[in-house]
């Protein structure tokens, strides 16, 4: 559907202020298309700056790098700064907070548990030897193994789209395990064993039932399911 400058689109936005509201509700806002290729984030900014300053949502870089503005748009998790309004082929966009996370206010959710699980897999280089005087060298082939793993922006879209992340509060989730894989397969890292010990858990890699929602949800087009399968393979290889 082509939207022209001057056209109007309805944003049906999830609203909830736990200090005031008894229950969440949806509020409709009219967003004017002011230039071709407007993003959903541009629409939300228009609402907040010109219509309703009480609307709460996170945003920062507005170009798909910071991962702040993960939300559920028309039933699919994505970052609003990477979602073109036109691509939804509708004049009414339903915008909700990421499912499975506690809502703080409106589209802002609590990421505490998500980040604790991320920190749990030790997302940093672990070295048993003293650091070299210059940079840590890595061959081109070893560096290529990290493609598809290091690009994660921690927006939470993948974990939030996983039904087992909703049902099992202890499940590490696709994002934490993608980041675990990013270091497990890094040739410069010596912490492979301890990371595999952490993800080798019934709330870790073995909870993944390959629903594949995480792949659809990832705005960076990464494949957390494949990363989890790689970790499963490494664990089985190490054990048997």
């Amino acid at each position: 559907m082509t939207l022209n400058v001057g056209d109007k689109v309805i944003f049906k936005v999830f609203r909830y202020n736990p200090e005031k509201d008894e229950a969440p509700y949806f509020q409709d806002y009219e967003v004017e298309i002011r230039r071709r290729g407007m993003m959903v984030l541009d629409g939300l900014n228009q609402i907040r700056w010109e219509q309703d300053g009480t609307l709460a949502y996170r945003r920062s870089c507005r170009e798909g790098v910071c991962g702040s503005d993960g939300m559920n748009i028309c039933g699919v998790n994505t970052t609003s700064c990477m979602a073109h309004i036109e691509d939804y082929n509708t004049t009414t966009l339903t915008i909700k907070p990421l499912p499975g996370f506690p809502v703080i206010k409106d589209l802002v959710v609590d990421f505490t548990d998500f980040f604790n699980k991320y920190f749990m897999v030790k997302p940093y280089l672990i070295e048993r030897i003293p650091p070299p005087e210059k940079e840590r060298l890595q061959s081109v082939e070893d560096r290529a193994k990290l493609d598809g793993l290091y690009e994660c922006i921690l927006c939470g879209c993948c974990s939030s789209s996983c039904p087992f992340y909703w049902s099992d509060k202890d499940y590490l989730g696709p994002s934490a395990m993608l980041n675990a894989a990013r270091f497990v397969f890094d040739s410069r890292d010596d912490g492979k064993g301890e990371r595999l010990d952490i993800v080798n858990n019934k709330h870790g890699v073995w909870r993944c039932h390959t629903v594949l929602n995480c792949i659809t949800a990832c705005p960076k087009e990464l494949n957390p399911t494949k990363a989890i399968a790689m970790l499963q393979h490494e664990i089985l290889k190490r054990k048997w």
Partner: peptide, 12 residues
């Protein structure tokens, strides 16, 4: 830490 450590909790 307790949630993700201990071999008894693995499901491999």
């Amino acid at each position: 830490i307790d949630r993700y450590t201990g071999s008894a909790k693995a499901g491999d």
